[in-house]
């Protein structure tokens, strides 16, 4: 079998010189380009990781950790090692005597364990490769989870995730905390019913029933109640997701209260404008048309003067009527203008 020619940087934490050389020899059988570093005790390991002597010191592809060191061993050693925060997979080397604890070390964050008496050259090589690859994969997964979590938490639109069975909030972003006034912890102790106005809750059951057919996407406008009791109108968009193994829904809640108020104000203005338009066409023209007809007749030479005098009275009456109607319209118009200034 040809040697692996990739570059490896391996840190061996081993006080026993014989064991160190053995591991080194095993690895050199399969790897052509290895750079070994030895730490002889825990303090040594800590120094290498925390006070690097060269820029690339402190970065290793893998760490082999003997469970029994002169200054620390067993659980104490692992806890202290975890505290350093080494960003490389760690393989525990242990004797038969410590087998039980070696297995347990996996649950404490160690990547793998090997029994010294059983180590073979190929077994060690395979374990190192396997753990390097697995570590890389887990790292990528963590990064992607972190990226999505950041997208969620820093989104300017209020968002949350809730459990579809219990209705409880599972996660809430900063914008939602700001919008509703509840803290993250308060939210976690609440169900989504608690941000709906009391009178809307009975109707909610229908909405849930409608939604139980697992529609992938939902959108609608709802009334929500803030912690301070203020009612807001929100445009809700939701999607079904699986959150920590639970069937959940992610919700986007955009506050559109201001927009709706604005539309309502405009509609009220339009109503007034329609009223004015109707008056212009139906009411204003009545006395005006009457006046035009009367003037038309008054200018007719064949009509006797007594009759014209009566008509003239009617002209004056119509003119007064028209004056009153115009004042009325001006009044309605003024009801619109101050509103525009206020808004």
């Amino acid at each position: 079998m040809e040697k692996d020619q990739k570059n490896y940087k391996i840190l061996i934490v081993e006080d026993n010189e014989g064991d160190f050389i053995l591991v080194e020899d095993f690895l050199l059988e399969h790897m052509g380009q290895v750079e070994f570093t030895q730490a002889k005790n825990f303090q040594d390991l800590k120094n290498i990781m925390e006070i690097p002597q060269s820029p690339d010191q402190g970065f290793y592809d893998i760490v082999l950790l003997d469970l029994t060191l002169p200054d620390k061993s067993g659980k104490e050693l692992i806890d202290a090692t975890n505290e350093i925060g080494i960003s490389a997979p760690i393989i525990v080397l242990s004797g038969y005597a410590d087998l039980g604890f070696a297995i347990k070390s996996l649950s404490l964050g160690m990547s793998d364990y090997l029994i010294k008496e059983n180590i073979s050259s190929l077994g060690l090589y395979k374990s190192i490769l396997y753990n390097i690859e697995r570590f890389k994969f887990i790292q990528t997964l963590h990064e992607s989870e972190k990226r999505y979590s950041e997208l969620f938490h820093s989104s300017p639109i209020p968002m949350w995730v809730y459990d579809r069975d219990t209705m409880k909030f599972l996660d809430i972003n900063r914008a939602a905390i700001e919008q509703y006034g509840y803290s993250f912890e308060e939210f976690l102790a609440m169900t989504i019913k608690q941000i709906r106005p009391q009178e809307d809750i009975p109707g909610m059951h229908n909405f849930e029933a409608d939604n139980s057919n697992d529609k992938y996407f939902f959108q609608g406008v709802f009334k929500h109640e803030k912690k301070n009791g203020e009612i807001i109108h929100v445009d809700i968009q939701s999607n079904i997701i699986y959150y920590n193994g639970k069937k959940a829904e992610v919700i986007l809640a955009n506050d559109i209260t201001e927009r709706l108020n604005h539309i309502e104000a405009i509609e009220k203005q339009n109503e007034k404008l329609r009223e004015i338009a109707w008056k212009q066409s139906h009411v204003v023209r009545a006395p005006l048309a009457r006046m035009l007809s009367l003037i038309h007749l008054i200018s007719d030479k064949t009509i006797p003067n007594e009759e014209k005098n009566v008509m003239l009275d009617h002209v004056i009456q119509s003119a007064n009527e028209l004056d009153e109607i115009i004042r009325d319209i001006v009044n309605i118009s003024q009801q619109i203008i101050p509103k525009q200034i206020n808004n």
Binding site: A286, L297, I303
Partner: peptide, 15 residues
């Protein structure tokens, strides 16, 4: 319903 219009219409229909 406007008596003035009735008066006007009467004159116009005559003329």
């Amino acid at each position: 319903d406007d008596p003035v219009i009735l008066l006007i219409m009467k004159k116009l229909l005559e003329k």
